[in-house]
């Protein structure tokens, strides 16, 4: 049972503290488990402290997303492999991610939020950010994908030729 008035103080990896409603943290499997492991009585102890391995700036973005999604149904619906699609990101989430695109380090922000969602076990946020990154590389060429992911080719020419041969099965 969740007590919406209960507050949880989250201490970030860079030492900042943020206090949020339990109504938000209920979406995080990690925080919920931490509170449960503390074996605190929700009524008797209205404030619990949980250390999260996420920096302050990223946690603020996570909390902004959680605030918007505070009323989402739990547990997060599991989808089969066939039902998984990347083109169903809600409009608010799309706008939320596009705000980062104005920043110089947009990709780093996206990676930071993906990692935070994974660590905090927030399935909805993890799904949304993974879809966003998938949409960025969807339909692109190898060179464009390398540029987006900021990766350098570390294959030899022979290895690349072998991969092309495997993937061109139905073209040769």
């Amino acid at each position: 049972r969740i007590y919406p008035l209960m507050r949880v103080t989250l201490t970030t990896s860079d030492g900042a503290s943020v206090t949020v409603s339990r109504q938000l943290t209920k979406h995080s499997g990690f925080i919920e488990k931490a509170i449960t492991d503390m074996a605190v009585d929700d009524n008797a102890v209205p404030l619990s402290a949980v250390a999260v391995d996420v920096d302050d700036a990223t946690l603020k973005l996570v909390i902004e997303w959680l605030t918007e999604h505070r009323d989402d149904a739990l547990p997060y619906p599991e989808k089969t492999d066939e039902e998984r699609r990347a083109d169903d990101i809600p409009a608010w989430d799309q706008a939320f991610v596009q705000k980062w695109d104005t920043k110089e380090d947009q990709q780093q922000t996206l990676y930071a939020v993906i990692t935070a969602a994974d660590k905090l076990d927030i399935k909805g946020l993890l799904d949304m950010t993974c879809k966003t990154l998938a949409n960025k590389i969807n339909g692109k060429t190898v060179e464009e994908m390398r540029e987006i992911l900021q990766l350098e080719c570390d294959f030899t020419e022979e290895e690349l030729a072998e991969i092309r041969k495997e993937n061109a099965w139905c073209e040769n």
Binding site: I137, T141, V142, M145, L151, C153, D154, F155, I163, R164
Partner: peptide
């Protein structure tokens, strides 16, 4: 088909 392209990005 995107995974095919992606497989050439890096090891």
């Amino acid at each position: 088909i995107d995974l095919d392209v992606l497989s050439s990005v890096s090891q």
